[in-house]
Amino acid sequence: MALIGIVLVALPFALSQAGTAWVRITNLAILFTLLALGLNIVVGFAGLLDLGYVAFYAVGAYAYALLASPHFGLHLPFWVILPIGAAVAALFGVLLGAPTLKLRGDYLAIVTLGFGEIVRIFLNNLARPVNITNGPQGITGIDPFSISGVSFAKTDTFMGAMISGPMKYYWFLLVVLVAVIAINLRLQNSRIGRAWEAVREDETAARAMGIDTTQIKLLAFAMGASFGGIAGGLFAAIQGFISPESFVLVESIMVVAMVVLGGMGNIWGVILGALLLSFVPEILRYTVEPLQKAVFGRMIVEPEVLRMLIFGFALVLVMLFRPAGLLPSAVRKRELAERKA
């Protein structure tokens, strides 16, 4: 355990050797892990398919951007805004959850998808008549994190070692990630976690057992959304610029893919899924071109296209061989075994 801890803390130094880009890629991967863990509460624990999860990510990002940028001239510190972002996102979660409580399965999927689009369209258009979000132009000059005057955007030298901006964010993200994983693990085995599982397996039975399904479902939406909101705030700070084009449907679908591919309901599976889907395209970005040249002596398929093709095939193949995800949750594993028998 301690060894893993040391490795994780020291990781950015090793990654920087391969290029600071890898530190950035890792940061994005952690962000998406946060998103996947948040969505896992809704999809994996409570069994509610949400195709508009990126809306909460967007809400968190815009909350941060509006409160810490020259756009409104506000510059609140990050430890004030991140909780605000989480709270606003949770509110949006309830807003989405409340009218859709009766919906099930695919009907819920399309409504959540619509919700995601509605949020994005509003962000894209709230520039007139009153300029709130600055529309498609996005918000520039978002404040980076800073702790007692040390900005996360700049490179510093500490005890002879170069500490780049992305590395600082990495450590911060690592702390958040560990906290979120801890919360998730606690949740899963708590009263609430078991209630979610009951709702997922059979809502009617759950209600008969005295579970307030309305409340428990809304709680899932709110909790899932708040993690998305935190991830959004972090994204805004790391990027320094956000615009609605970062919060499109494809992002939602990618997060769902991470959850399902990894093994929905299983926290470690979801983490694995998020890390794989974040890293594989980037690894392919570095390897496809040299590999093709090495094997065929020239480029046959453009690397960008081949990268996407491999990614598509990987999604299909993983699902064919591991239908319940790479690391299925205990319940799913049991179900699958029963069905096959």
Binding site: G19, T20, A21, R24, L28, Q239, S246, E282, R285
Partner: peptide
């Protein structure tokens, strides 16, 4: 480099070019 017209990929590949 391909930034996929996606801002987050844009920063990643920018860093990749800087690294290179």
């Amino acid at each position: 480099e391909d930034d996929q017209a996606d801002p987050k990929v844009g920063t990643t590949v920018a860093q990749k070019l800087v690294d290179a």
